[in-house]
Structures are given as structure tokens and as C-alpha cells.
Amino acid sequence: MARFFPFMLLAVVAYGVAVAAMGVPLSQELLNLRLPSGSVFTLTMSELLLAISTVVLFFEIMNATSAKSSSIFNHGLSLVLFIACGLIFLFVPGFGTGTFLIITLMSLVDVVAGYSISILTARRDMTFGNQE
């Protein structure tokens, strides 16, 4: 079941829960740390959502390397998610932000990488004639 699931949906849901449902501003500071250099590192909600999305994208790309037939279904669901993200970005209040645009672009990278990796894997695995 996990092979079918587009994990980028987790990033979209995290954005929806944090920003749209709970009303947390993207600029809200979540963490302040003084670094040994004397600089202060500040983590905002927007940066946290993008960090989570980047980690999720890594796992999606790792999932795309699977040569199983279920990966094609996963790529299709990822494409549906990308289209939904694009429509949500355009038409749903609270989602028309730079942060959500980057999450949408990450879902596009997931789609392109998934299909590209599948094609390259299939091409590499294809054999012709007698292989003795």
C-alpha cells in the first residue's frame, strides 16, 4: 500500500493543517538559536514546511527507483497531486503563497523524476536477442 501513496501529499497536508486550518502565519518564528559565530538562527513556519517538503521529496525520489509495476500507479497519483496543487494554488485562499508554490514545484519534480527514472530503468533493463 505504501508504494501507491504519493508522499508529497504529506507536505501538502502539513501546509494545509498549519497555515489554512490552524491559521499559523508563515512568518511566525518557531525557533531562535544563538550560533557560536554570534549570529542568531531563526526558523520560521515557512522554512520548516519547506524543510519537511524537501525530506519528503527525497523519499519520493527514492521510491521512484523501484522497478515494480506499482510505481506506475504511484507516478499517476503524483501527477494528480501536482495538478491538484496547481489548482489549489490558483483558487484556494491561503494557498497562494511562495511557500506553497515551492511545494507545488517539488511535486512537479517528483512527477518528472518518477517518470524519468522509470523510463531510464526500463531502457537499461530491456534486452534484445539472445544474451548468451
Rank of each mutant, 00 (worst) to 15 (best):
L101K: 10
F95P: 01
A64I: 00
G98Q: 10
L90D: 12
F73T: 07
G76Y: 02
I83Y: 08
F89G: 02
T99F: 04
I72P: 01
L77W: 08
A64Y: 11
H75C: 14
C85Y: 01
L77K: 04
C85H: 08
L77Y: 11
A67G: 15
A84K: 07
L77H: 07
T99M: 07
T97I: 01
L79Y: 04
L77I: 00
S69H: 10
N74C: 04
F95D: 03
M62I: 00
A64D: 06
S66E: 13
K68L: 11
G86M: 12
F89M: 07
F59K: 01
L87H: 09
L90C: 05
I72K: 11
A84P: 11
V80I: 13
G94Q: 05
F89P: 02
N63P: 00
G98E: 11
T99C: 13
S66D: 13
T99Y: 05
I61Q: 10
T97D: 09
C85I: 00
L79F: 13
V80N: 06
L57I: 01
I61G: 12
V56S: 04
G96P: 04
E60N: 09
G76N: 06
F58V: 15
T97V: 01
E60G: 09
F89C: 02
V92K: 12
F95V: 02
S71R: 15
V92T: 13
S70K: 02
A67Q: 14
P93Q: 11
F95H: 09
S69V: 06
L77E: 05
A64M: 10
I61M: 15
G96C: 04
G98A: 09
M62G: 09
F82V: 00
I88D: 07
V92S: 08
I88S: 08
F89Q: 13
G94K: 09
